[in-house]
Design a protein around this nucleic acid. Structure first.
Length: 411
DNA sequence: TCTGGGGTCCTAGGACCC
DNA sequence: TCTGGGGTCCTAGGACCC
């Protein structure tokens, strides 16, 4: 039996797939989700047939500062990807259908698929709207034990007279292979339950820890199920890009590439002392562990929020003096939204912070620790206003945000 | 073609206290 | 007047993730 059996479950093209449930006529077409709510489909009469049909916006006419949040696999064929600017996506796939993001709807389906999973395997860690980790260790152990008990009771009468004959009636203890076979069965059930509850497909990775499970879930997308037992970790991980490791982002990958390290195998082979020189004690240690597939992090089923924030990017850059009224109105609105988020979730914040992004994309933050935690919009606005006074506002502003941190539960 | 919005975690320096 | 560590809190920025 492996020490742990961890699953990572990732919904396939989640937002886009939810939209396809609403608009089935878009199935098979390149569809991109993102941008503002200006691109709602409209009903109109087809002049040729007289039929009522929905007309959708296409990327071609998009103008604005939005980014792609998700694209269907058909749109990805054109090179469109998450986090890409919409203007660029429009160049790559001008005829792709454009739909606005509808977070309320995605949250609804998120709750549905998570509930479906929990009904089978309760140890679930939330990792955002469309993915979770699941610790299947106990469930696998219980099922294998159950299977053995079943076998024993079936056999018991036949062997009733020879209980002392050493091993004849004893089934083998559950092996590594039995455990992964059982886990694969559970994963199939999870996929079926998710499909049943939502109509959506997901991909699952099964591995001895979260790090490998996360990589595994991506190996066979969409609708995948990939098992990577400990013995297979080196073989399966080595050829992959270091970017596949959750926690190695664009900066670290570029730095590693400069040092001639591009794959997980190359990272695993790197001298720890060499990595230490370039990445410092703690990050280099983590890199080495990750490259060897070592990860002891538990599946955490509950966590308290640390901060709540609201921010907005303007349609055009605003100037602190020339656009004072408009800025001030937006600023207050953000404070009110943060206050309402705190109140709705019953938290009070001890620090209030602001975030500004200037026209040159430089970002600054300021924060302010209060005497007493608050969820009051006026107090938040006052504290945020204090922060704003400490920022040089000569450059035009692209983004403004307000954040509540150092949260404490209320009541 | 300039790059959203909501988060978490880490680092590092300085204040301040013992 | 100069010199210690250790611990905690605060602030700012940055990397990373979904």
């Amino acid at each position: 039996m492996p020490t742990r059996v961890i699953a990572h479950l990732d919904m396939d093209a989640f937002y886009a797939s939810v939209e396809l449930l609403r608009y089935p006529e878009l199935r098979g077409l390149p569809v991109v989700i993102g941008g503002g709510s200006r691109h709602q489909p409209v009903w109109e009469d087809d002049p040729a047939t007289g039929e009522r049909k929905r007309r959708f916006a296409t990327l071609r006419n998009y103008a604005g500062r939005g980014v792609v949040t998700t694209a269907t696999y058909e749109a990805r064929e054109f090179g469109v990807n998450s986090a890409m600017g919409m203007m660029k996506a429009a160049q790559l796939a001008p005829d792709a259908v454009l739909l606005p993001t509808d977070f309320d709807e995605y949250r609804k389906y998120s709750r549905l698929f998570k509930a479906a999973v929990r009904s089978i395997a309760p140890t679930v860690e939330d990792r955002g709207i469309d993915e979770i980790y699941i610790d299947l260790t106990d469930l696998v152990a219980a099922r294998l034990a159950g299977a053995r008990a079943g076998v024993e009771s079936d056999w018991a009468p036949a062997f009733a007279g020879e209980t002392d004959s050493q091993e004849s009636a004893r089934p083998e203890p559950p092996s590594e292979a039995d455990a992964w076979w059982c886990a694969r069965e559970i994963a199939r059930e999870l996929k079926a339950a998710v499909k049943d509850a939502t109509g959506l497909r997901c991909s699952i990775g099964l591995a001895p820890n979260k790090l490998i499970a996360k990589i595994a879930s991506e190996l066979d997308k969409p609708d995948g199920l990939t098992v990577v037992p400990a013995a297979e970790v080196a073989r399966r991980m080595s050829p992959l890009s270091v970017r596949k490791v959750n926690g190695v982002g664009p900066k670290s990958a570029a730095k590693l590439a400069q040092l001639g390290i591009r794959t997980i195998g190359e990272l695993a082979a790197a001298e720890p002392a060499f990595l230490r020189q370039h990445f410092g004690e703690s990050y280099s240690q983590w890199l080495t562990d990750a490259a060897h597939g070592r990860d002891e992090r538990p599946v955490v089923t509950h966590s308290e929020p640390k901060s709540m924030s609201r921010e907005t990017t303007f349609d055009r850059d605003l100037h602190a003096v020339r656009d004072k009224a408009q800025l001030s109105e937006i600023f207050t609105e953000l404070c009110v939204e943060v206050a309402h988020d705190l109140q709705r979730k019953h938290y009070a914040a001890k620090t209030i912070g602001i975030k500004l992004r200037f026209e040159d994309f430089r970002t600054v933050t300021r924060d302010n620790t209060l005497e007493v935690p608050t969820d009051d919009p006026k107090a938040i606005r006052r504290a945020a206003g204090e922060c704003l006074k400490r920022v040089d506002l000569r450059k035009r502003i692209r983004l403004l945000g307000v954040r509540a941190g150092a949260l404490s539960p209320r009541g």
